[in-house]
Write a protein that binds this DNA or RNA. Sequence first.
DNA 1: TTTCAGTATAGATAATTAGCTAAATACTGT
DNA 2: ACAGTATTTAGCTAATTATCTATACTGAAA
Lengths: 102, 102
Amino acid sequence: MSDESNVFKALADATRRQILQDLQSGELNAGDIASRFTISGPSISRHLSILKSAGLVVERRESNRVIYRIVEERLALCVGGFLSAVCPEQIVLRHKRRKVGD
Amino acid sequence: MSDESNVFKALADATRRQILQDLQSGELNAGDIASRFTISGPSISRHLSILKSAGLVVERRESNRVIYRIVEERLALCVGGFLSAVCPEQIVLRHKRRKVGD
DNA sequence: TTTCAGTATAGATAATTAGCTAAATACTGT
DNA sequence: ACAGTATTTAGCTAATTATCTATACTGAAA
């Protein structure tokens, strides 16, 4: 399936969109994320893996926790790209300048 | 279901995203839209009704054709709104000024 | 009013999805 | 090695989705 479809499908679920919003203010581990919802841990884990394979989050392990971080550029480029193709009058992508060496 | 979820679910399908892109350059009737795809007319009709109930397109009948138009504001506000909540650094919503009486 | 073109709805089917519980895996510290 | 905590995977079910064909509806024109 197209890369873009993966992203939009990931965003089609309210729980996953909320996870992304929660991650906006900083990294969280899986348990912290799960505790913000009423659905089971395994279900949250599944949502996280969908977000991960869409490239919308990345994970790293720190001792026995798995810490998730949002990948804002991915969202901005993919969704923002679509948006500016479809309603160019109403949206502006502000491409972040990369520092040398990044 | 939430309004926002309806919009994102509508966008989760590649055919529907393509329909929106096709409509970006102007109105099209159902047949014109269907002829751009290989799937059956009824399937396109179904996709159009999903886009319609998400508020992403509006239709009007002109003699025996049904003409579809994209509702860009809806996309910009809903998707753009989410985007600017989740990656505010990377996106700018340019709110179109409404003319008096609009 | 019959016919035709354009669209939409109904009904069926196969595939996908979100959720659950139970079990497995990955680390840490003893 | 063992026990404990954190997280993921497996296996299941119920609900949703995309597609098809066949049928019905809408409006124009013969």
